[in-house]
């Protein structure tokens, strides 16, 4: 019921340039992940000890927030395709708010670590943890801004085209996808 009517010809959902950007970003994160894995392999005990200090409930909540936001973005695109621009605007806004919740929660988590005097040089584990999480944080921030902007445009007389909507969505899903790997990798494994 919710799946988007698919188009007959294979077609990239969104702008080619945005997809190039997404691939490049995935490459950056991918290299970072593999570096993490390599470092983990060399210092298993250190990494385990570090992981024990992280808050899994907070991160689980964040995973839910991002995934739900992604689902809302899909709703927004469905609505936009059906011509319900105001409805799409609300869906985008909802997704942006969930993104904000993620940011807030993450910020509290980072703040908690800072308070404990943890910094990049505390240990190799925290270098990776803070580095990865902060880098991803900046991407969520960018994603939220994009979603908020899309939402605003939906309420304006000239609503955004499907190309823009697909592109914004794809970027957000990329941020989501990266987190879905990052979360188990850094928190659980």
């Amino acid at each position: 019921m919710l799946s988007i009517p698919s188009r007959s010809q294979p077609q990239l959902p969104g702008d080619l340039a945005v997809w190039v950007l997404i691939l490049a970003e995935l490459l950056v994160f991918g290299v970072f992940f593999l570096a993490y894995v390599a470092a983990f392999h060399g210092h298993v005990a250190l990494f385990r000890a570090g992981q024990a200090t992280l808050s899994i409930p907070a991160a689980t909540f964040n995973t839910l927030a991002l995934i739900t936001a992604s689902a809302l973005v899909v709703q927004a695109i469905v609505a936009l395709q059906a011509g319900h621009t105001r409805k799409a605007g609300w869906w985008f806004a909802g997704a942006a708010v969930l993104g904000l919740l993620f940011l807030l929660n993450k910020w509290l988590e980072l703040h908690h670590h800072m308070q404990a005097g943890i910094s990049l040089s505390t240990s190799l584990f925290y270098m990776f943890y803070l580095g990865l999480v902060f880098f991803h944080f900046m991407h969520v921030l960018a994603g939220v801004l994009i979603l908020a902007w899309m939402s605003r445009r939906c309420f304006q007389p000239r609503p955004p085209g499907m190309n823009a909507a697909w592109s914004a969505g794809a970027y957000w899903h990329m941020v989501d996808l990266v987190w879905v790997v990052l979360f188990p990798l850094v928190y659980l494994l």
Binding site: S70, G169, L177
Partner: peptide, 12 residues
């Protein structure tokens, strides 16, 4: 996520 959110199942 790739298949359904990103909707790549209809992509090249």
């Amino acid at each position: 996520i790739i298949e359904f959110f990103m909707h790549l199942h209809t992509a090249p």
